[in-house]
């Protein structure tokens, strides 16, 4: 156990190219997924928040229930869609980094939407009342509300990124864990155990832990900033 840890730390300290490559790829893929998901589902969440329609409460409840949708189910869904025999098979996306990004973006969509709606609700009706009372259009008022939340958005993005970076189901099923192409921290850790290379698995595990802790730390900082202390 001790030697394992020492060897793992040695590999990290020596910037083992394999470990660094996998770490960087993971960060890039998961941040792409986060950006994509926020760009697509953030505005959708805002639309839901700022409009009224029948079943709105139920829809928001459903979104929040989906926070905990198992990653392998999303993996399976995206696999079935992207497989050559699936509806989007013609794109040849299965086992590519793009597939991981798409799958993770979908996976974190409920988190993005749910937290975005919570954030917008947190701004309070006073802000939009003020804006509307001074002659803002609905769109202008919505933009003001979005703007007021400021640091809370960082929390949304970081939470979404945290879920994307730590999931293994989607990356494994639609990425295929291809070395130098779609191998991420989580899939590599699974593989490391599978192949009995425990030192590499531990080294990658430490990197994943560092990433996860950094995300949590930053989310905390953002949270404190948004509360204005």
């Amino acid at each position: 156990m001790r030697e394992l840890l020492v060897e793992a730390v040695r590999r990290i300290a020596a910037l083992d190219p394999e470990v660094m490559d996998i770490t960087l790829r993971t960060l890039l893929l998961s941040s792409s997924a986060t950006v994509l998901s926020c760009l697509l589902f953030g505005p959708l969440a805002a639309t839901i928040h700022f409009t009224s329609f029948r079943g709105k409460g139920a829809l928001i409840g459903l979104v929040q229930t989906l926070y905990s949708v198992p990653t392998v189910l999303i993996g399976l869904l995206v696999y079935l869609v992207l497989s050559r025999s699936g509806p989007l098979g013609g794109l040849g996306l299965l086992f590519t980094p793009q597939a991981i990004v798409a799958g993770q973006a979908l996976l974190i969509a409920p988190v993005v939407m749910g937290l975005a709606i919570t954030t917008l609700r947190g701004v309070g009706s006073g802000v939009s009342d003020t804006a509307l009372g001074l002659g803002a259009s609905r769109l202008q008022a919505a933009l003001v509300v979005v703007q007021q939340a400021r640091h809370a958005w960082a929390t949304v993005v970081l939470m979404a990124f945290g879920r994307a970076v730590s999931e293994v189901g989607v990356a494994m099923m639609v990425g295929g864990n291809i070395r130098g192409h779609t191998r991420t921290l989580t899939t590599a850790i699974s593989l490391g155990i599978g192949r009995g290379d425990n030192a590499e698995a531990v080294a990658l595990g430490i990197m994943l832990l560092v990433v996860a802790l950094a995300v949590t730390f930053l989310a905390n900082v953002a949270g404190r900033l948004s509360r204005g202390t």
Partner: peptide, 25 residues
Amino acid sequence: IAGPGRMLSALLLLSVVVLPAHAPA
């Protein structure tokens, strides 16, 4: 609200458009 299938397809299509520019490796 678009149907989930459509949304998924749109998302995947978008990722094809957006990603190759910065897809790693």
